[in-house]
């Protein structure tokens, strides 16, 4: 037990010195690191070299009041059996970040496609940002906090004149 604890503190030290950022040990086997968005490719490459070879997913969080998107890169290490979440924040009005497809290739590309179509984030260097789930989609990115999906659906798909569909308009918006 003591050996595992020792190994973990060693890992935190190594990571914080290598990645040049402060590491938070949230839970057992779960670490957070917050970095600047410009360093994302370097940090991911360093993490890969340190043994975090598996990219689970890329998720985005919309902080509406703050006016920023938070991108979370979930990495996993088979060697240390620990997950590392790399967090970075980007501007909400011009959401743009460099792509990590040079490191995790097509899988990162797919994750970035998803973020692009659901949040409208532009990944520089990713040549394939075609829609993944939403074919023929004309509206704004649907996962944004200020997108009123019910209002949009009522406007696009239903007609208030149609007696069969009036019931849908009685629902509170």
């Amino acid at each position: 037990m003591a050996a595992i604890e020792q190994e973990k503190t060693d890992l935190v030290e190594v990571l914080s010195s290598e990645l040049d950022a402060s590491i938070t040990l949230k839970k057992e086997r779960r670490m957070w690191v917050e970095i600047d968005s410009k360093k994302i490719v370097d940090v991911c490459l360093k993490a890969l070299q340190l043994g975090f070879e598996h990219l689970s997913t890329i998720s985005a969080v919309d902080w509406l009041e703050e006016g920023r998107f938070e991108l979370v890169y979930h990495l996993w290490s088979y060697k240390y059996r620990t997950s590392l979440n790399i967090k970075t924040k980007i501007d909400r009005n011009k959401p743009s970040i460099s792509s990590i497809n040079s490191i995790w290739d097509t899988y990162a590309e797919t994750c970035e496609r998803e973020c692009h179509e659901l949040f409208g984030i532009n990944f520089e260097g990713n040549s394939n940002l075609t829609p993944l789930f939403l074919e023929d989609w004309q509206g704004p990115p649907p996962f944004l906090k200020d997108f009123n999906w019910r209002e949009y659906t009522l406007k696009e798909h239903y007609k208030e004149e149609n007696p069969r569909e009036q019931v849908y308009f009685e629902v509170k918006k």
Binding site: W137, W149, T153, H157, Y168
Partner: peptide, 9 residues
């Protein structure tokens, strides 16, 4: 899912 933006009505 009547009010979903991505289903067939």
């Amino acid at each position: 899912y009547w009010d979903s933006y991505n289903t067939i009505k």
